[in-house]
Amino acid sequence: MRATALMIQRMTLDVLFPASADEAATLYGDGEGITVFAGGTIILPEIAAGRLVPERALMLHKSGLDEIRTDGDRVLIGAMVTVAALAEGDDPFLAGAASQVADGEIRRNATVGGNICSPPGDDAQRGDLGGALIALGARVRSTGAGGERTEPVEDFLAGDRAGRLVLELEYDGFERRTGAHSLRRRHAHSYAIAGAVACSRADGSDLRVAVTGVGPTAVRCRSVEQSRDPADVLKDVQPVDDAVATAAYRTAVLPTVVREALDHLEHA
């Protein structure tokens, strides 16, 4: 055994393998001193390079959170459902969003829970699925200090996500019109420069719009939902600079990206 393995052995004291969602919630407690390990696509390189030294790691792969179920009209997606499973799933809108994440090999590891919990990276924004989930009106069931709660994805993303263990996502399955557009380089590793997604009921009412890739998390765009004017997106978000694009560029293109998504929905 060489250096890397020895280093990891020394570093991580305790790795926990809950065998059910309840056990995961109990072991997680209030989240103090515990690091959640899902697919590992973000966190494993951090641990292997010694940049992150988890005191205790909670590995979720045996916790039974990897199912997509339906309960009446509701669709429930376990936190450990892989992005690959979503990309091959029954919902074409979610499948479309999922198949834009990274590449097929990474999607087989990457989970939906990890996607909405991932902190923004140093060179790119992450968490591309957040936008599609907001547009669907999805809710997050999480546990942590103060116990379990269920809240809209946009509130979860806007709040303090540290200290929450995500168990499941859910949304109401009804007939929708959807639209999506994203601006990206054609390369598996290139995160979106800017993306917009929109959903409404079949008759066009209840429009929900979200953008991703332009700031630390996906954001719901209430101004656009009300006015249906793509230019209003700049009232909802303030694009940031990173290695993928400048804030100025994102600011310039974002209204067009939103317009494209709304046009798709209009003609869906």
């Binding site: 990891i8 991580t12 790795v15 390189p45 292997a48």
Partner: peptide, 16 residues
Amino acid sequence: IVSPPLTPLLHVLRDE
């Protein structure tokens, strides 16, 4: 496998 649980499979294959 004797490597610790959070060892990347890459290092298990190459190093162990």
